[in-house]
Design a protein around this nucleic acid. Structure first.
Length: 276
DNA sequence: AGCAGTACCTGGTTGC
DNA sequence: TGCAACCAGGTACTGC
């Protein structure tokens, strides 16, 4: 489901709704696994831990506790919601964290497809050593993601540039929607091979990725099917998509019919006139 | 090494 | 109306 703007919106919603610090009084793991089994010690680590802040890295939300970090990924259909600890649970609610506080004191993780996953990082371990985080490339909205860096990551690659933009080792946070949208804005064909992308195109791609992600964050993300922020709100950036899910509709710039192709098993949308 | 394809799941939509 | 096929915002694993 979520790409960087949606994950960032969820993180901001959590930070807004929860007055930190909060101590976890109960942890309910309603099944033994999501995509991967929960770490065996997860419940013991969380119970009694004090939640101090939220952080995002790529599409991961990091819950920072006094004694370590809960790493969470929403997969395609994961969501967090806050409710009273007395409110009933729903289908596909897999994890419930209860906090010591009156009122809406339960944080519930729901995930129908269960592609999401959790991990635990002890306080004495570095985040960079984590099996998931150590694979990640630069944050797209930081100066670490520059035309020079992108060029060096694409120059020896024979995969298509759209597929490479979705590779977290190249840049984090860009998924299927924003890869298509950014390449439209950059005027670059999604099927162009990484090694054929020029320095000038890298400049436009970097600028477009930053712009489209920033604008999407400001709109609260894209709500295509099931996305909801932690405050229950949908985003509305989907109304400003130029190409995504607009097969055979007229290009908003030149009127040409938007094309749909499949790359690495995923749908890609582009304008054959605007993207050469 | 790196690429393409597959697997993991449920549920909504489409087409017969 | 019913049912099967197909598709979905992600990522890790496999086999070539």
């Amino acid at each position: 489901m979520p790409e960087l703007p949606e994950v960032e919106s969820v993180k901001r919603g959590l930070a807004k709704e929860l007055a930190l610090p909060l101590v976890v009084t109960d942890v309910e793991l309603r099944r033994p696994d999501l995509r991967f089994p929960f770490p065996r010690t997860l419940r013991a680590h969380l119970r009694g831990a004090r939640l101090e802040s939220f952080q995002r890295r790529g599409k991961y939300i990091l819950f920072r506790f006094d004694r370590g970090v809960l790493l969470t990924h929403l997969g395609m259909t994961g969501s967090w919601r806050l409710q009273s600890s007395r409110d009933p649970l729903e289908l596909h609610d897999h994890v419930v964290l209860t906090f010591r506080k009156s009122g809406r004191s339960a944080l519930v993780y729901n995930d129908p497809r269960r592609f999401g996953f959790f991990d635990w990082i002890d306080r004495d371990q570095s985040l960079e050593a984590n099996r998931f985080l150590k694979l990640l490339g630069p944050e797209p909205l930081s100066s670490d993601f520059s035309p020079g860096v992108l060029k060096s990551k694409l120059k020896a690659r024979s995969a298509a540039v759209k597929v490479l933009l979705m590779d977290a080792k190249v840049v984090v946070g860009v998924g299927n929607i924003y890869a298509s949208e950014a390449l439209f804005r950059a005027g670059v064909r999604p099927s162009a091979l990484g090694k054929r992308i020029t320095s000038a195109q890298c400049e436009r791609i970097v600028e477009s990725v930053k712009a489209v992600l920033q604008e999407a964050i400001e709109s609260g993300g894209s709500t295509i099917r099931t996305y909801r922020g932690a405050d229950g709100k949908a985003g509305d950036f989907q109304s400003r998509h130029f190409v995504y899910e607009r097969k055979n509709e007229p290009c908003r710039v030149c009127g040409t019919k938007i094309k749909h192709i499949v790359q690495a098993g995923r749908s890609t949308y582009y304008c054959p006139t605007c993207q050469r």
